[in-house]
Every structure is written in C-alpha cells, then in structure tokens.
Design a protein around this nucleic acid. Structure first.
Lengths: 221, 221
DNA sequence: GACAAAACAGGACAACCGGTCTGTTTTATA
DNA sequence: TATAAAACAGACCGGTTGTCCTGTTTTGTC
C-alpha cells in the first residue's frame, strides 16, 4: 500500500558531494568552525554515509587537502604558469586573473591552501606535511618554468628557487591582507611591486636611470 | 580554628595573566582550538574572575588582538624599521632578526597577526576590522619611513605604498610557508629575493649589465 | 565602621560536537 | 537466486564548550 522505498547507491557521487560542501565550508569558516552536522545537512547526507566514506573528521579534511586544495593550486597557478609564454608573464596573468575574479564576486575568502595551512599546520603533522607538499609543488613549478625560460630568454641571472619563493610568498601574503581588508586591490599593488620597485622612467620623477638593488646589502655583517 | 582565608585582589595582574596565556594559546592552537577551560587552568584563574574581566570569549580575543597582537607588530616591525637608518635597511634587519630567532627556537608558530587574521577575518566583522587596522598601521609605518628617506636618500623613484605592500605581503606569506614547512629558511630566501631579483654582477654569470624590469609589462592590455 | 561596588569563587546547565553502534537496503559475484 | 560485502540510514552517547548564576570576599569611600 505504501510506496516502495527507493535508494540508488552512488558512492562516488556521495563522496564528491561531501567533499564539495567540506571544501566550501572549510574555505568559508575553517576546519574547527565547520561541524559535521552542518556538513551533513548541507550535503544532504546522513551520518552513516558520511562515516562510511570518511571515518573521522580528520580523514575528511585530509581528503579535502590532498584532492581539492591541491587541485585548486594546480588549476589556478601551476597550469596557467606552465602554459604561459614565460614564468614572469604567467605570474602576472595569474595575479590579475585572481584579482579580477575577487573584485567581480565582491568578497575575498582567501587562498584555500593558506587558510588551512594556518589553522592546521601546528595541530597535526599529517595535515602539515600534506600542506607543505602542496606549497613545495607550487614553488617547484614556478622554479621549473624559470629554468625553462633560461636557455632562450633573458633569465640568466635569475635564481629559480628564489624567484619562486618570492612569488609564492608575495601572493600568499597579499591574499592574507586582501582577506582581512576585504579588498583585492593589494594583489595588484603587490604585482606592480614585483614588476618593478622603482617607477618606470616615464612615470617617476626620479633622475636615476640605472636600476639599483632593491635592498642594499647590510653595511655590517 | 581553621586558617583565615586570604586573597589579594589584583585585577590588573589577573587581567594581564589571562591575556598572557590567551595570547600564547591563540598563537599556538588558534582561537577555536583554545578552550576557556584550558586558559583558566593555564592562568590559574577561576571562571568567575575570567568572566568578570572578559564577559565573552570574543571580548577576550578582541583584547588580545588590540593589545597584544598590535603591540607585537609594533615592537618587532614598526619600531625597528622607524629606528633604522633607512626603510630598506630596517626591513632587512627585521627579516634577519626574525629568521635568526625562529632558527634558534627550532620551530615556527607563525605570525600572530596572520594566524588570527586567517581564522577570524571571515567569522566576525569586529575581528576583521581590528586586524585590518593593524595591517594598515604596519604598512603605513613602512611607507612613512620610505617617504622620510626620499628627500636625502635615493628613494625618489620608490612608491611608498607599493613598497610597503610588497614588504608586508612577502613577509606574511613567507611566514605562512615557514610555519607550514617548519623551516625559517624561506624568510632569508625571500629577503634575498627582495634585495635583488637578478644576482649581483659579481655573483651571477649573466653578461647583462643593465638591470631589467622584474616582470615585463603584458604584451597585450 | 557602614556600605556599596568591584573582584573573585565555583557550581550548574543547555547546547553541541564527533564518534559509535545497530540495523536496513542495494549491489556485485558466483 | 543465494550470499556476502558494500552502501546507506538514523538513533545514541560521553565528553566538552561557552555562558550564566548565586554567593563570598576584598576594597574604596563617606
């Protein structure tokens, strides 16, 4: 008399839905402020199903980090930079693309990698090493691109690792400031700072023609 | 018959002790992962006393931000930079001092401002504005120092705000990476990146003499 | 010393969290 | 179709959290 019960097992889809809402909630509220109850409600998933795919909250977060956060860095940074005509051009394009996207959506939720890195690095060593590996891959991709530019282009004097470290640090820090001030303009400011410390001759009033070192060597060791 | 009860009211000292342990715990474990019970035990303070000085956990965190975090930025960044012979020298000195301190203590807990900024900026607007103000003061101090260098020194072509934004972003991001990798070396790497993109002529094998722009202008608008 | 306010003590509580447990349904395999 | 494993449902529980509340003690003030 009652309607037949229906259920379609879709383990992959359910797992994906859980990861979707977890990724979003971790980004918006952080790990500790995201309760499994909220995630279950948002994903339309029962406790049994959640526990079946992710035995603990930590396992869920680890999956988010290794699958989603790593993919986000790959898609928004590594692939565009590697596909660009040069490392420097790739870096510029990513900075501006991200700034444009943030300004369009009107708010700044920050870098997913950075957000979780701050909250979880000291809490658990598995979290920390997973996040550190993503940072490492990110830096290495940029350094590799610089190296690829060196034979033909004019990157002979650029230290690849140093350049990559500076770019990743500047971007991460700029996103932190942007998130706190809810203003993506700092990204463009930092990009211009990377492009050139001194104003270009056509803009600046300085009479100095020759480029100087960005920071002087210390006078005393 | 029993010993007389003794108690010495010391509101300022008690408030200071609570702020001490809260500052430390927020830095080590973050806001959400720091329970008031733990703080009370660590500070040797009862619930009544804690509630008397800080009615809510949020009020406590706000006090930590406005009194302790702001002071930390002032003491480790603003005052040393303003006291230095130049902005660039001050920046260099702070980077190296922090790197040396982190290497000496063997672990990296990250920048207090950055840590709380990531966890609390999106959670509450009072938190966010308080943190944003500290970032703003930090940047402004560096920019002011650059401006102070300009009349006499050779900072004619340097945009103060741009320089300050780049320095603060690079430092914040470098600390994020250092915290995640538990290695302060990235701070020195980033400092050298700030000092000079291209290797100095005496070090580099490049034959290029004239300094080039750090990042080329985009070919198409 | 009277007295009010501040400072402090410590228990109580309701809400919530993450994890576990038992039971049912679907699906793969033979 | 028999059967075991996977997939899912949903209730349950111990522990924790932040806050509140009622007293007690100290301290400043007239």
């Amino acid at each position: 008399m009652a309607m037949r019960k229906k259920r379609t097992n879709d383990p992959e889809g359910m797992r994906r839905r859980v990861l979707d809402v977890a990724e979003d909630s971790f980004q918006a509220h952080g790990y500790h402020a995201s309760s499994l109850g909220d995630l279950m409600a948002a994903a339309g998933v029962t406790g049994g199903a959640l526990h079946h795919h992710f035995p603990t909250k930590k396992a869920l977060a680890l999956a988010v980090i290794e699958e989603r956060v790593a993919a986000a860095v790959r898609e928004t940074w590594i692939e565009p930079v590697l596909a660009a005509s040069s490392a420097r051009e790739g870096v510029r394009a990513v900075f501006e693309a991200v700034a444009a996207e943030l300004e369009q959506q009107g708010y700044v939720r920050g870098c997913p990698l950075n957000n979780l890195a701050h909250e979880l690095s000291l809490a658990d060593d598995e979290f920390r090493s997973a996040l550190a590996r993503i940072f490492g891959n990110w830096r290495q991709a940029i350094a590799d691109k610089i190296r690829a530019d060196q034979p033909g282009g004019g990157e002979g004097g650029t230290d690849p690792e140093r350049f990559a470290a500076l770019v990743v640090a500047t971007y991460s820090g700029a996103m932190s400031i942007a998130k706190t001030s809810q203003d993506a303009g700092i990204l463009r400011e930092c990009l211009r700072g990377l492009e050139s410390f001194e104003l270009s001759p056509s803009q600046g009033g300085s009479t100095v023609k020759r480029r100087r070192r960005v920071l002087p060597r210390p006078k005393i060791a």
